[in-house]
Simulated scan of single mutants.
Amino acid sequence: MTDHPPFHIDGTERPGRWLVTCDHATNRVPPEIGPDLGIAAADMARHIAYDVGALGVSRKLGRLLDSPMIHTDYSRLVIDPNRGEDDPTLVMKLYDGTLIPRNRHADAAEVERRLALFHRPYHDAYEALCAGRDDVVICAMHSFTPQLKSRPRRPWQIGILSAYDKRFTTPFIKALESSESLLAEAKKIGERLVIGDNEPYDGHLPGDAIDRHALHHGRLNLLIEIRSDLIETPEQQAHWAALLAPILQATLKETGL
């Protein structure tokens, strides 16, 4: 068992019905894996290792929603907590042009070891938080890179991902599109407001965290992706959490869900 917990929970005692989650919170490589993954520090600072800025937004959002927040504390390159146990991308060997040397020869036994040390403890705690109340709403927080290598720049400031359960995401996207605060935010950075509906990628992978903890239980949910250049600093992270929290609360109230 690792000496450093693979996840942390903020605000277990908070009474709100939200559960804010951050699957790709840090780029830490636990000592059980090695001092590093064999890639450059510059690569470990990129989106391939974690969701830049997402943890700061998640922490602030949990406080503003007066609800618990859970996050991982290991790099997605160690093992991806937002993938099912049988997903071939669970332990990535190549990501956005970067080879991951420490993962190249990870066999079934090594993947099982990482599952036991990092992946399963996080999901056990995640599920325990969900099961604590019947009306929980899962709000999964992620960020996306402005541009993948050899790909066009992404135009969205924010994307809302969902699968077949769109009870909350459809009215939430409409609320974002009409939000004066978001329109002003886009104008401030010299862009028009562009909100992605299952962009910059599709919102459903069988066995992923939302599939496992929300869809299989009929729990209300959404997954928010913010473009990472907009949430690089603590000030930006707090700002975006403050933009989103009232819209989340108002949508929940207005829909009566």
Rank of each mutant, 00 (worst) to 15 (best):
P206I: 10
S228F: 04
E177N: 14
A214F: 00
A116R: 13
R28D: 08
P68M: 11
A125F: 00
D197V: 05
T233A: 03
D43A: 13
L193R: 02
G256N: 11
I231N: 01
R46L: 12
Q237C: 15
H123M: 03
K174Y: 09
A109L: 11
L65A: 03
G218I: 06
P15C: 10
G97Y: 09
D229A: 10
I160E: 08
G56R: 10
A175L: 14
E232I: 07
A41Y: 02
P171N: 01
V20W: 06
W156A: 02
E110Y: 02
D86I: 15
R133I: 09
K174I: 09
S162Y: 05
P246W: 03
I138H: 01
H204D: 00
N103R: 09
R227G: 07
A140L: 14
C130M: 15
D36S: 05
Y201S: 07
P68D: 10
I173Q: 00
I231P: 04
Q157W: 04
G132T: 12
P200M: 05
H8W: 13
C139R: 05
I226L: 06
E199L: 12
V194H: 15
A140V: 14
V137C: 13
P15L: 03
D208K: 12
Y74D: 09
M92C: 12
R154P: 12
T255V: 05
R63N: 08
R28T: 08
R212K: 07
E177K: 14
H47N: 01
M69H: 10
L223M: 15
R104G: 09
F144W: 04
Q147I: 06
G56L: 05
R120Q: 11
L193C: 00
W240D: 01
D96Y: 10
A209Q: 13
R113V: 08
I160F: 08
A42V: 11
L65R: 00
Q249H: 13
A186P: 12
S178G: 11
L243E: 07
G196P: 07
R167V: 12
T170D: 15
A49C: 06
S67A: 11
T21D: 03
Y50L: 15
D87R: 06
A108S: 08
E232T: 02
P6L: 03
H47G: 04
R167G: 09
H204V: 12
M1S: 15
F172A: 04
M92K: 14
R104I: 07
D134P: 13
R219W: 06
H204G: 12
D107L: 03
P152M: 04
Y122G: 00
L115P: 01
A242D: 08
L90H: 12
L117G: 13
V136K: 04
I247W: 00
L257F: 15
D124F: 14
P152E: 07
G53L: 01
P35M: 13
Y50A: 13
E110S: 02
P101F: 15
I195W: 13
P121A: 02
R114K: 05
E32N: 07
A106I: 08
W156R: 06
R59G: 04
R219Y: 07
I173F: 04
L176K: 00
A42P: 06
L193A: 03
D135R: 01
